[in-house]
Structure formats: structure tokens, C-alpha cells
């Protein structure tokens, strides 16, 4: 009986220890989860993430990419234009700047709003002078993503090349140093971390349109949206740019 009591007490103490350890572990895990860093924090790379600060604005990349050094970066304008050349970030300071609030709508379902600053494509085109046969631009990005937009689409109101987000230079995750903002199109038609813009004579399929059920046009269609800042509560959308919220 005495042995049994000892055994029971030992079992009780052992199980109690593990139960307490489990509670502490769960508490610790929950706490670190709330303050979690995203996968690429503190590394030379950036890639797809929904963690940490990006819970409120998801980040997609085609492939993880090395962060771009703004001091070395130059935007190359190539292809069918009379004055192909490269631009530095300093050049953009001479362009007429525009700021707009617009919502990025991902084809996956979520969306998020931000204030974007940059310049219109016309600012560049005055200098590089695209040729009449140039029907569109093929964007080459730091993560090897490619996307095509027609010049007609690029010259629409509210389509800008953005270098700032919410009053600060773009972060690496959001496409530093330059990205396209085309609010009436799904996110995959808003290429980021742009390295080169190539004027081409024919329509081309972008990376996602080549491999998945993604339209080459990419216009946001009527349906529902799940905005991140509204806890993904479904909102009906009429298609095109989301302006109601």
C-alpha cells in the first residue's frame, strides 16, 4: 500500500511537471507567435510571407530574391524606343510626383489599401520616346518574374510607377526600389522590384499567365473581396478598381 502511494505520488509529480511544462511551452509559443518576425527578417533575401508586419498586407514573390541595393540599382528602359537608357533613383526626383490611395487586390482573395507615391508612365515616355510599333512593356523583375501590360493599360489614369508607400520609400518586401501600381488589375499585374522595362511590339503572357489559370488582361472582376484590414469579412466588389472602402 505504501509502495502504491509512493508510486501514485511520483506519477502525480511527474505528470504535474509535464503538464506545467506544456502550459509554459504553449504560453511561450503563443507569445512569440504574436511578436513573430517574418521568414526573411535579418537576411539578405526577401520572398513570399504573411508573417509579422505583413499579416496586414501579404507579400508575394515569384521566387525569393536577394535584396536590391538602391545605390547600384538602375532602371533599364530597352526595346522599341528611340532613346533607351537607364535611370537611377535620383532621376525620379525630377519627375512630377503623384500620390494616391489605392487598394491592391490579389486574385487569391485578399486585398489591402495603401498610399502610393510615384510618377506616371508618361514622365518616362517623354524621355525614352517609344516607337509607334511598341504596343506594350514587358517588365523584368528582381525575382525573375515577368509581366506584360499594354501601353493602353499603362496610360490609364491612376496607373503609376511607385517608389514610396505610406510616405516612405518602398520596403524590400513591397518591391523596392520601384513597382507598378495598376489599381484596376489583380496584384499579379502590379510587378515589383523592377529591373528593366522592355518596349515590345506584341502582346506577351506574363509568368503567372503562362503557368496558371490567370488571365493575361488581369482586370478585377465582379465578385467578393476579403480585405485584410476588415478581418477578411466578405465585401461585394463591382470589378475594376475597388473604390468603396
Amino acid at each position: 500500500m505504501r509502495t502504491l502511494e509512493k508510486l501514485t505520488r511520483r506519477l502525480f509529480l511527474e505528470r504535474g511537471f509535464w503538464a506545467t511544462a506544456l502550459i509554459f511551452w504553449s504560453w511561450f509559443r503563443g507569445s512569440s507567435h504574436a511578436e513573430e518576425l517574418h521568414t526573411y527578417e535579418g537576411t539578405d533575401f526577401i520572398g513570399k510571407t504573411r508573417e509579422g508586419e505583413y499579416k496586414n498586407f501579404y507579400i508575394n514573390f515569384w521566387k525569393p530574391m536577394r535584396r536590391i541595393n538602391g545605390e547600384n540599382w538602375q532602371l533599364k528602359i530597352t526595346g522599341l524606343c528611340d532613346a533607351p537608357q537607364s535611370f537611377t533613383l535620383e532621376h525620379f526626383k525630377t519627375f512630377i510626383s503623384t500620390t494616391q490611395s489605392s487598394r491592391m487586390k490579389c486574385v487569391e482573395c485578399w486585398s489591402a489599401r495603401a498610399q502610393w507615391s510615384g510618377f506616371s508612365i508618361q514622365e518616362l515616355e517623354q524621355i525614352v520616346r517609344p516607337q509607334p510599333e511598341a504596343k506594350g512593356i514587358l517588365f523584368h523583375c528582381g525575382d525573375e518574374y515577368k509581366e506584360y501590360l499594354s501601353r493602353e493599360a499603362l496610360n490609364q489614369d491612376r496607373v503609376i510607377l511607385a517608389h514610396s508607400m505610406n510616405g516612405k520609400p518602398l520596403t524590400d518586401a513591397h518591391g523596392f526600389p520601384l513597382r507598378l501600381i495598376a489599381p484596376s488589375k489583380y496584384g499579379y499585374k502590379n510587378p515589383k522590384a523592377i529591373l528593366e522595362m522592355e518596349y515590345v511590339s506584341e502582346h506577351q503572357a506574363g509568368t503567372w499567365s503562362k503557368i496558371g489559370p490567370y488571365s493575361q488582361d488581369g482586370t478585377i472582376l465582379p465578385g467578393t473581396d476579403h480585405p485584410l484590414e476588415f478581418s477578411k469579412k466578405p465585401h461585394r466588389i463591382s470589378g475594376g478598381e475597388i473604390t468603396d472602402y
Binding site: S184, D217, T219, L221, P222, S238, G239, G240, T243
Partner: peptide
């Protein structure tokens, strides 16, 4: 119903 800005030029309308 779907409500759309009249100046929009959209591929689904």
C-alpha cells in the same frame, strides 16, 4: 445589380 462608374471601360461590361 452591379454599380459601375460610367466612364469605366471594362472588359466584362
Amino acid at each position: 445589380r452591379n454599380l459601375v462608374t460610367p466612364s469605366n471601360r471594362l472588359p466584362f461590361i
